[in-house]
Simulated scan of single mutants.
Amino acid sequence: MFRTLFDEAENGYDLLDFNTGEIVDCNQSFADLVGRPISELIGQSHTIVHPPAHLRDNVAESFVQVSNSPDGTLVVTQFVTPEGVVRDVEIRAQQICIDGRQLIFGSIQDITQRKIQDDILQRLSQAVEQSPVAHILADTLGNIEQVNPKFTQMTGYTFDEVKGQQLDFIGSSSETSTGCTFDRQVILSDTEWRCELASKRKDGTTFWENISVSPVRDDQGTIKHYLVIREDITKHKRDAEKMELLTHYDDLTGLPNLTLAKIHLHHLMVNVQQHNNMLAVLLVDLDHFRKFNELYGYEFGDGLLQRISQDLQSCV
């Protein structure tokens, strides 16, 4: 029975002589892992599957650990096939005695794919940790489970302060640029949700942010988490407002420029035509202003324009 279990096991099994490291026995799964036939392995040193010196040293240390641990030891190492294919393996080794001979029984599992996945997850984790935008992971009820450092930098809240809180824990002002509302029942859906709104930091200051909420599904398509990405766009909003001012308003007086005046006039004309209303347009001109500048200087002239614009605005 033991022989059958040994030979047909999915995991690789091998028996090593404790004193010499010679391979006494192994199954086909072990032979497949190392890329050699069983007949070629029996009687060989275990180093045949660990060509690089640092791997041989790693396994040699495990011999000492096995002898000092009655429950055995776990070794993570690599096998290298004759073709140079490297496989990451996990060996659970234990010292046993058969017919008075001290042996090491090894149960070997190929963890190459697991290592690849672990490496991918580690890189993703590092990317999130170093991301220039805030990342939040929440459960299906909207309770915060994890945040990255950028979240703390952006909002002022530490992870301990928001752990277990609802996604709308950070108070949002009523000001939005898209008419959306950061409402838990709305965002916790089966589709991606996006919004641009003003939120409040821990110190009470307001900042603009782009928020996206996406469901995270398992292999069966069931929603297990929600990923929230929050990007501070305050500077972008301010730059856009400045550009709007430069495009449509006079830099000196703050009054609408000719471009904006034409836009307003067009809208008013459309309204007049649609509702049969009347429209009056007043044109104000400053005569001989150029001579005034030449006589008193441009700085004084600019001040006069600003004063006149203030008087005009107070009359409207």
Rank of each mutant, 00 (worst) to 15 (best):
M1K: 14
F2V: 13
F6I: 09
E8G: 05
A9H: 04
A9R: 02
E10M: 14
G12K: 02
D17G: 14
T20V: 10
T20F: 04
I23C: 09
V24P: 01
N27Y: 06
V34A: 03
G35F: 06
R36K: 12
P37D: 11
I42N: 10
H46L: 09
T47F: 06
T47G: 00
H54I: 14
H54S: 14
R56H: 09
N58M: 08
E61M: 05
S62Y: 11
F63W: 14
S69N: 14
P70W: 00
G72Y: 01
G72R: 07
V75Q: 01
T77Q: 06
Q78T: 09
Q78F: 03
V80N: 08
T81N: 06
R87P: 05
E90L: 10
I91S: 05
D99G: 14
G100T: 08
L103T: 08
G106K: 03
S107C: 15
S107Y: 04
T112I: 10
T112N: 12
I116P: 02
I116C: 01
D119A: 15
I120G: 01
L124P: 00
A127W: 05
A127C: 07
V128D: 06
V128C: 03
S131I: 03
A134S: 15
A138T: 05
E145I: 02
E145D: 06
V147Y: 00
K150L: 07
T152R: 00
Q153P: 00
T155N: 11
Y157E: 04
F159P: 01
L167R: 02
F169Q: 07
G171A: 15
S172F: 07
E175S: 10
T176N: 10
C180L: 07
T181S: 04
I187W: 02
I187F: 01
D190T: 02
T191E: 10
E192Q: 10
R194L: 11
L197H: 14
K202R: 15
T206W: 08
T206R: 13
F207Y: 15
W208Y: 10
N210P: 03
V213Q: 01
S214E: 00
P215M: 00
V216T: 12
D218I: 03
G221Q: 00
K235I: 13
K237C: 10
D239V: 12
D239W: 13
E241D: 06
D251Y: 05
G254C: 11
T259N: 06
L260A: 01
L268K: 02
M269L: 09
N271S: 14
Q273E: 06
H275V: 09
A280F: 00
L282F: 04
K291H: 15
F292T: 03
E294T: 15
Y296W: 11
G297K: 13
Y298N: 14
Y298Q: 14
E299H: 08
L304P: 02
Q306A: 07
Q306K: 13
I308Y: 10
I308E: 01
S309K: 09
Q310P: 12
Q310S: 11
Q310G: 08
Q313K: 15
Q313I: 15
C315E: 04
